[in-house]
Write a protein that binds this DNA or RNA. Sequence first.
DNA 1: CACCCTACGTCTGTTTGACAGACTCAGGTG
DNA 2: CACCTGAGTCTGTCAAACAGACGTAGGGTG
Lengths: 157, 157
Amino acid sequence: MSTPAALTWSTTNCPVGRAMDILGESGTVIVLREIFNGVRRFDLMQRHSGLSRAVLSHRLALLVEHGIVHRVAYRDPGERERHEYRLTTRGFDLQPVMVALADWGGKHLSGPEGPAVEVEHRDCGARTHVALVCEEGHVIDRLRDVRTRPGPGAMPT
Amino acid sequence: MSTPAALTWSTTNCPVGRAMDILGESGTVIVLREIFNGVRRFDLMQRHSGLSRAVLSHRLALLVEHGIVHRVAYRDPGERERHEYRLTTRGFDLQPVMVALADWGGKHLSGPEGPAVEVEHRDCGARTHVALVCEEGHVIDRLRDVRTRPGPGAMPT
DNA sequence: CACCCTACGTCTGTTTGACAGACTCAGGTG
DNA sequence: CACCTGAGTCTGTCAAACAGACGTAGGGTG
């Protein structure tokens, strides 16, 4: 406790820090929520999310710049060509983050009536949550059973 | 696609939105990273995280206000009484969020040398990640096998 | 006792970014 | 042609982050 091991390596290339450089910008996660829920067009997103048009525009540009979403042209009958925003593979990989956030918010920040959304397994309809699993296949339920360690890219302080 | 189901319910009590009201404040997740890594004292946190003292102070107050961390008095030999910040149960429940962020950042935002930190299973030492599991016990690997649906607290738009 | 040190913040002035709301622009409709 | 809609951009105001200085409480040192 006196000298935590984490102090011996640098935070300059911390994965959490790098992720938050993108996801920590105001509104980024809200935009992703909309897109994960199938809302892909600017105006619908703006109205449903409540973000200002300027912030939505900037966050979409940020997400495109980082390869998390991409613009796809489409054309409704009798309309001109427009663009919508879809997740890339990199963006889809954020799903565990979104589900983890929904789990926590649903458990700790809901009113007495329960959470406003749930995640379901499409095959069986059961509620779905995130869990920690190790590469040996153990499902870890006691949170104290995991710890962080430096990885191959770790740099000393 | 034309009318996404998500548009039929309100976002006012969305668990993701409520979670981000706290975690989306600049620096909140970085503070949590430090505390999860065992860095619990103000000065060490400030130096290791690189946050300004003012922001660190405000974010710690926010986390205490929401019951995610609490201040605990301690006394080193020959020192005066001080306080450190520790996770509450509610704070510890954020571990899947942190691991999900580390997973994604490590996979998509690391240099060629690999991620700077990894999470290990304390018992077997294997690398640990988050996964989606449903209440029927299925481990879900294809991300498209899950979808969101309104929960008991859902409100119409 | 006077002074210094350390941990833990708070204060100040500057700059960045969010907000509400108006404006722009392109293409299609009546 | 005048108007509508989707998708942004611009403007002025206000809140918050930044770097860096300052404050303060309690202990140790000469």
